[in-house]
Simulated assay, not measured.
Amino acid sequence: MRIRATVAAVSGALALSAFAVPAAHAATTAPNVTFSNMKVNSGKAITIGATSIVKVKATYTVTHPSTVSLSNIDTGPVLYRGTSAESADTQVVSDTPGTCTTANSTTVNCSATITIPADELWNSDAGTWKTGGLAVNRTTHAMKWQNDLGTIPVRRAAKLTADATPEPVKKGATLTVTGKLTRANWEKGTYGGFGGQSVKLQFRKAGTTTYTTVKTITSSSTGALKTTVTAGSDGYYRYSFAGTSTTSSVSSAADYVDVQ
């Protein structure tokens, strides 16, 4: 897997961006801190486009014995896939150490930014990631990794189009609605057709605000969509995709049809 030089000490990790992580020293003692209340992107799924560089905020709490000072300890959040943040094949550490405010003599509340560039992801990286924490003693270079602080979905962004023809159309005539469902290919930096997916054709009558589902169709192997309906009244047609565990939900822009 690809490794950035700044975190090359994290052997085997796909480390996308990180605060300085030095080589570990076996003879030193790891920082005596504990992470909790880790929340990344406010708990919402992280959606990444084909060429996006996505920045998300993480907040967390660090507790420590009153005899331990944090003045020489950097902390930050970690996103990873696998059983361990330290040995994960896919891993992202915060850009810089977290910024913390003191809650009491043994607790600080922190925030940090995590940057995820699409061009350092494999398509297979989409799915559920875990959250963890990393603490580094700046003097001894000792590290503490903490696992299993929560989960966060990381999804490939989807795009969807809709085009209803003919326009205008006579009432009772056949209206054809075409479109295409695509999703981000992180490895190629493009969007490719997403086939075999259930997509809803929806209609909103002019003067109203609510869409209703007309029918559900399946995208072709290239992501193409095509179906017909009977024109009844003026309004807006769109396609809507609910998403999957690896791909974001999306609705197309609405296409207005004048029924005469």
Rank of each mutant, 00 (worst) to 15 (best):
R155F: 01
V56H: 10
S36I: 10
L225P: 02
L134H: 01
A24K: 05
T161A: 13
T246W: 05
V54H: 08
N72Y: 06
S94Y: 01
V7A: 11
L16I: 07
R81Y: 01
A8N: 05
N41F: 04
T128S: 15
V40R: 03
T230C: 06
S84C: 01
V93M: 02
I46F: 14
A135M: 00
I114L: 15
F35V: 01
A8D: 12
T106N: 12
S198H: 12
D95H: 01
T216D: 11
V154M: 07
G133Y: 06
T230I: 09
T47E: 15
S71F: 07
S240Y: 01
I116R: 07
G196R: 04
G82W: 05
G193L: 08
G12M: 04
A242Q: 02
G179H: 10
A20G: 08
M143V: 06
R183E: 13
V68W: 10
A158L: 04
A50H: 11
S87R: 00
D95M: 03
N109F: 09
E187T: 10
A158V: 00
S69Q: 05
G243K: 00
T174P: 08
G132I: 02
G235D: 06
A85C: 03
T6H: 03
T99C: 06
A30V: 06
G172K: 06
A24M: 06
G150V: 03
K170W: 05
T230K: 09
T59F: 10
T176S: 14
T244H: 03
A206M: 10
T213S: 12
K159I: 02
I53L: 14
